[in-house]
């Protein structure tokens, strides 16, 4: 164990050289690459943080936008619901009005139909009553009734005023050549004479009278003077009664 000064000095130099070698070829490059990697990682972290912040900002923005959209959608939905309710109420009102009008129309039509039916029934009843009366008079009427009707006719014609006679004379127009008289039963001579006298007195005409027997008249006379026809018989009176009653109803 002895100290060699050459070895001592050379070892000192060797170690200082080794420190320089390691510092130049190992520590500095390795620490530089570690620093570069750390810088890169920090840059990536900063970039990731920036992206994260941007994502947070975008997320908040989209959430606000979604909230706005939801609010607008809710408002639009409320407005639409209100509009639908108003339209529904209006349509219901129109429908109820239309229904009321239709109901009124139906009621009018129904009442009209019922009136028509009543009138038909009444007309039918009148006709049936006229037929019934005609049938009744077919068996019940006789020369006595005709005589009474003839007397009633002559009395009425005799009691006409001059204005009424003048009004009647305008109805037959041109003076007829013949006056036609129909009766249900054979007309006796004395009554023919009395009738001709009354007619001549009332009409002022002195034309021949043609007599015919028509059993359909049941009882009474049917006198035709030109255009004027005088119904003084049961058949025509019943018919007239039925027509007048129907027209009055």
């Amino acid at each position: 164990m002895e100290l060699s000064w050459s070895t001592f000095l050379l070892e000192i130099i060797n170690f200082l050289v080794l420190v320089w070698i390691l510092k130049r070829f190992l520590y500095k490059p390795v620490l530089d690459v570690i620093a570069r990697r750390r810088t890169g990682i920090e840059d990536q972290l900063a970039e990731a943080q920036r992206h994260h912040d941007e994502a947070d900002t975008l997320k908040a923005e989209y959430e606000n936008r979604l909230a706005d959209w939801d609010q607008e959608r809710q408002q639009a939905r409320d407005a639409l619901a209100q509009e639908l309710n108003e339209e529904r109420a209006r349509q219901m009102e129109v429908l109820q009005t239309t229904l009321a009008q239709e109901r009124e129309k139906a009621q009018v039509a129904e009442s009209r139909r019922r009136a028509e039916a009543a009138r038909g029934i009444e007309h039918h009843a009148l006709q049936q009553s006229a037929q019934f009366a005609a049938r009744l008079f077919t068996h019940a009427a006789g020369p006595e009734l005709e005589t009474r009707l003839f007397d009633l006719l002559v009395d009425n014609l005799s009691s006409l005023s001059s204005e009424q006679i003048a009004a009647l004379s305008t109805q037959w127009g041109e003076p007829p050549e013949v006056i036609m008289v129909a009766s249900a039963y054979p007309f006796a001579e004395d009554r023919r004479q009395r009738l001709e006298e009354t007619l001549t007195e009332v009409t002022g005409l002195s034309v021949p009278v043609d007599y015919q027997q028509t059993p359909d008249l049941l009882a009474g006379l049917h006198i035709t003077i030109g255009a004027w026809v005088l119904h003084a018989n049961v058949r025509d009176e019943l018919k007239a009664f039925a027509e007048f009653a129907y027209a009055a109803g």
């Binding site: 050459s6 070895t7 000095l9 050379l10 070892e11 060797n14 080794l18 070698i21 390691l22 070829f25």
Partner: peptide, 18 residues
């Protein structure tokens, strides 16, 4: 300077490290 085997070994180690 006297170069011993110690110095030679040291140089060899330094060379290998380098």
């Amino acid at each position: 300077l006297i170069i011993t085997n110690t110095v030679l070994t040291t140089w060899a180690i330094m060379g290998a490290i380098w």
